[in-house]
Design a binder for these strands. Structure first.
Lengths: 254, 254
DNA sequence: TCGCGCTATTTGTCAGACTATTATACAGCT
DNA sequence: AGCTGTATAATAGTCTGACAAATAGCGCGA
């Protein structure tokens, strides 16, 4: 069978700019970005299906499938006669990975970033505390291996960032709480997008390893409170770095 | 308002619980329930579009739109030649309102409920603390009004439950953190589904008002820590009630 | 044994017609 | 005049049937 087939790097890298091969996917992406970036505000009604699909040079069914995707994520709502209109913000699935990705494709507001970090600051330390109580030896070993790799490669390389992801993912898995995993995973992935800004800005100003090791040690020792505090510091420092990088770079690129 | 018609083709007795109006919606719902309930396990491939749509007596496009919805929520993944297969669980958007609803339509496992409450226990107290620091007078007034209404109507009535929702929603809004709102709103809505079990089981064993008022008082006074602790107690008691109701009702069919 | 191209299967896309729903305007009634 | 019910028109929803594109798996040949 195809067990080790899941290379990972290749499959994910294919979601680069432009489109994802499938028409309905790229239309959903384009519309989604237009919505989360405010080009289409809540309450606005989109062109009817015929006009819209003509303007985009696609068939009506492809356009409709794109709309279904957006509707599934709470961004729009369709009704006969009224048309398809952008839903109020409180209906949006702000934690959906794709929606988050769309936010980050159109320079999210600093306030939004702030809110995400705030949520991360609530969730990840709690996750670390749970992990300290529930991790098993195999997970512990994977965390250590990830940190070792991360230390060797540094966050400047793709492999290093993958190791970082691996560490955090294993911490989450160790909580044995599936909803918590998907949540924190989404936030983490989104926030890690900002790493690109940081990297592009200049060399990483701070060595993240000591803080990571403190989290690991606390989890290994089974000290929940200590793990929580260590993770709090870690996230806090990441926030500082990101905020500094953003303030130093008020110019938008395109 | 009569639900007249429906006779028509006659052969579509397949349409269960009746509503959702839109075909693609009900198909997505049916398939979604089948997936989250384990009838289709991760890795399983669904029938190809032609067979499936024939078996359901719907057109291929309607079926495809249903699949797009499920794919948008991470439940399935479609590729040419391979077909559409159920995604691994860690891809599922467990916090999506519809996915949660589907879980609760097919008696969720106790473990899953436990995990949801655990997450709620992490998020809601933190939200209460933030609300205590950021609420404005108008929000405060709406919280008070909601609690007064809740006290009059009790949780046994629809109006009383609406007031409960209103209270919690206002607390969330007061955090001024949009992602936190959508998250906690989803969890709250899902967990409140269990209220039905509780009600069905017997009279509500405990008066929830004193704990609600304590949360309110702390938020009104701007005492973040106090609000956090009060909300912790509130959620904890809800968990106890739910767990008791479930254990008292082990009636398992199928 | 290994690699390369063929093919069959499945999703993806397209086009056009018809149906269902409903907001709105309008006529009719009180 | 004000209200009520109905006709109308606009739009999403559904269906049909066809063709295109991608690709997993197989067989062929080096």
């Amino acid at each position: 069978m195809s067990k080790a087939k899941e290379a990972g790097a290749g499959a994910d890298a294919e979601r680069e700019e432009g489109f994802s091969g499938r028409i309905h996917g790229s239309i959903a992406r384009a519309l989604g970005i237009a919505i989360v970036s405010g080009q289409h505000q809540p309450g606005d009604v989109l062109n009817n299906e015929i006009d819209a699909s003509e303007k985009l040079h696609v068939s009506r069914s492809a356009y409709r499938e794109a709309i279904r995707i957006l509707a599934a994520k709470g961004l729009v709502e369709s009704r006969p006669k009224t048309g398809t209109r952008v839903s109020p913000r409180h209906r949006w699935s702000l934690l959906d990975p794709e929606v988050l990705a769309w936010f980050f494709e159109s320079e999210p507001s600093e306030a939004f970033l702030q809110e995400l970090y705030e949520l991360r600051m609530i969730v990840e330390p709690a996750a670390a505390a749970l992990a300290a109580e529930r991790r098993d030896d195999a997970q512990l070993e994977r965390m250590r291996a990830a940190l070792v790799a991360m230390q060797h490669e540094t966050l400047a390389t793709e492999a290093g960032q993958a190791a970082d992801r691996d560490f955090h993912d294993t911490v989450l898995e160790a909580t044995r709480n599936a909803p918590l995993c998907t949540l924190s995973s989404s936030i983490g992935a989104a926030v890690r997008w900002t790493t690109i800004f940081k990297q592009r800005d200049r060399e990483l100003p701070r060595d993240p390893m000591p803080d990571h090791w403190k989290v690991f040690d606390a989890i290994a020792a089974g000290r929940a409170d200590q793990a929580r505090q260590a993770m709090e510091r870690l996230v806090n420092l990441a926030l500082d770095d990101t905020r500094a990088a953003i303030e130093r770079r008020p110019g938008r690129q395109s």
